[in-house]
Design a protein around this nucleic acid. Structure first.
Lengths: 156, 156
DNA sequence: TTTGGTGCAAAGGCTTTGCACAGTT
DNA sequence: AACTGTGCAAAGCCTTTGCACCAAA
């Protein structure tokens, strides 16, 4: 059976790039942290744990390459650093994010919420959509829960 | 009749800030370029035309202040610079953007397209939405038109 | 005179780039 | 040998900050 990393390897090859040990180590870190939204520095530190000789510049170059090949998406939550998010294989659309303004947590929404909205935009604005970014900023369920518990305690 | 700048002045005052000449010059530039999505540098150069003695740091500080007061929104289209966008007065929601990957133009959508989507997110993810960012990347109507015209010409 | 605001230059943080070297083909 | 990729350090770019000075209350 073909693994995820094999498929990424093929993608690289078909664009005339090699899956070098450094690139493989970087991709593995991304696969192991699919839920997270790692910055280049984050990725670098994690890769370094297993491949201490890697340089930060190589990580940047690899992430740029993977972005170009659409293996990852480069996203920006407005905090000054770029974050890299592995694309879901075969996903027709880019997933959405919920950023908690209280605790900073970032949750992902895989559902396609924008189907109808995109139809409207394409029709009414004559705009051919290729990609989208949707991020909600607010209070996550964990912080809700925390403040509910606090209210409970205050009562007693 | 109360002007837009008067209302912004009041907003500043109620947060114990003054509308200094530099701040006023900056706000005026933003008002005169409401359609655009200016970077701090852009704003600085435009302000400098009328108030040559202003410093870049002051522009940054003013833009930060206006962002804090929610007079402007700081947005980021992933090109490495922050852009500043005057909020529509009384707008319940932040408008959306169409970024053309061909010509780089940025159009705004003022319509509230996310009402239904937000209800779903709040209910299904128990997430209290405070703000959102929605950007579509694709081909704008102008570039569509251009390529249509080209096709027409090719036929002849 | 106290406080908030400004301009300038320096520092900061993230990212990119130049260059010599290593690894493959 | 030719080429791609790498590590390191330096440079780049946007943004923030320290500090002396200015202006208003």
């Amino acid at each position: 059976m073909e693994s995820r990393i094999d498929r990424i390897k093929k993608q690289l090859h078909s664009a005339s790039y090699k899956l070098t040990p450094q690139r493989e180590a970087t991709v593995r870190v991304l696969l192991e942290h699919e839920e997270d939204h790692l910055s280049a520095e984050d990725v670098y530190l994690l890769v370094k744990e297993k491949s201490p000789e890697i340089g930060l510049a190589t990580v940047y170059r690899t992430l740029e390459l993977l972005t170009e090949l659409k293996v990852v998406d480069k996203i920006n939550f407005g905090d000054g650093v770029s974050r890299y998010d592995l694309r879901q294989e075969g996903a027709a659309h880019f997933h959405h994010h919920l950023v908690c303004i209280e605790c900073g947590a970032v949750d992902e929404i895989q559902d396609d919420l924008l189907g109808d909205v995109e139809k409207i935009v394409e029709r009414d604005w004559n705009f051919k959509i290729k990609d989208h970014r949707l991020t909600f900023h607010g209070i996550c369920w964990r912080c809700h829960k925390k403040s509910d518990e606090k209210t409970e305690n205050d009562k007693q």
